[in-house]
Design a protein around this nucleic acid. Structure first.
Lengths: 219, 219
DNA sequence: GCACATTTTGAACGTCGTTCAAGTTCTTTT
DNA sequence: AAAAGAACTTGAACGACGTTCAAAATGTGC
């Protein structure tokens, strides 16, 4: 009847994932998890430091899933020998929109948690886990010719990724209307397309090189 | 000693603003506000439906402030007869970054609230208040020549605004490092500049018109 | 001064995260 | 196999939270 330590921990984690996926960030209750797992409340605090520690693990797993999806997209792109940054980024963005569509509650729960908890009190491995997501886009931009500089590439990666993220999460509503996905995707598509197209006309210093035919700025 | 109804309500609102500005979304407690205002907890529930109703008002005021800042920027731009969308949008974005810099806690508290509460249970006036913010950018894009179509302009407004929002809020950390503002601004500047530059090379259908010299997409 | 309506009060309710002494189970030693 | 020690589990208890509502206090019209 009794399970070993790791199995119980695993079960608690899964139940926590389900609770958050169903009821969001506030849906995770110590007593609820304990009852569902057939253990007492105290045991949860033996397996995890506290509920936030449990949330840390749940969120980490969610990021793992997103990264797995992204890795799949990158694999497909590589198999097709796709080198166009615009097409690659659009494929990645589409995957991200789909991810939020299926894991919406969990994803917003994670974002709510990240905001609620002070960055200083987050463990280093968790912060590193977050930063790792940015490198996915950075890798794509690396393969393109127009973004050779590492600093600029980093700025561009974070700008684009955060931008797509902003569209997806700001537009996301719990009540799922039919037009949400369409409208969100239209915005994402435009942002990615215009951003990538615009990068070709900007030099490393950030000044516009070729906008309307006139040269702009300059000493 | 006793104040009239409106004064008390005003005082509670101000105290609620201060509590949220200091301690964030979770910092607003019924008993805390009651004690600070010199009233009993029950009275709060007479002035507002519940704490979320109070938060609604606080957030609405915060949006008012942002809009006032934006209106000031637009006034300055109009005074200078500025017609360049890029320059106008950069000025607006800079103002937004500054706004989040000074009202960070309150702003993230609002975002946390908006996510936590189901959209369906939000009053119409609150949802309308949110949508109104998008129109600021829409108005700027309207003055430019390349975005005549209302639908495309709406998409572009929301994409850009959400994109900037994503950069600012995703990058915002409670512990304010010196480089946060610089890094955030570098990303915002790049996003706005590249996005606007890119819009010139995209037709209404969203396909790239002039990217690298080759025409792309087709029939 | 009286009757009625309105507002304020704060004790009380249920729920939450978290703790910890006491009870139980596993491990090691003899 | 028994005893001793370590490690884990338990659930009642604590303080804090949002919210309610009968009772008290205040305001209003006559």
């Amino acid at each position: 009847m009794t399970l070993d330590h790791d199995s119980v921990r695993e079960r608690v984690l899964t139940l926590a994932e389900e609770a958050i996926a169903t009821d969001g960030h506030e849906g995770l209750k110590a007593r609820g998890i304990a009852q569902a797992a057939g253990i007492s409340v105290g045991t949860i605090y033996n397996l995890f430091e506290d509920l936030d520690g449990l949330r840390l693990q749940v969120n980490s797993r969610l990021m793992d899933r997103l990264e797995a999806v992204a890795a799949g997209v990158l694999r497909d792109l590589a198999a097709k020998h796709e080198t166009d940054a615009r097409i690659s980024l659009l494929a990645l963005a589409r995957a991200y929109v789909g991810f939020v569509e299926t894991h919406g509650r969990s994803w917003t729960a994670m974002l709510a948690f990240n905001r609620q908890v002070d960055t200083a009190s987050m463990p280093d491995w968790y912060l590193a886990r977050q930063d790792q997501l940015f490198e996915i886009i950075g890798d794509i931009l690396k393969t393109t010719s127009f973004m050779a500089d590492a600093t600029t590439r980093r700025t561009a990666s974070r700008a684009l990724w955060s931008g797509v993220h902003g569209i997806v999460t700001l537009g996301y509503r719990r009540t799922e209307t039919d037009d949400w996905a369409a409208e969100t995707w239209a915005q994402v598509e435009l942002l990615v397309t215009a951003f990538v197209a615009g990068l070709h006309h900007i030099d490393a210093a950030g000044t516009v090189r070729d906008l309307t035919g006139n040269s702009d700025g300059g000493a």
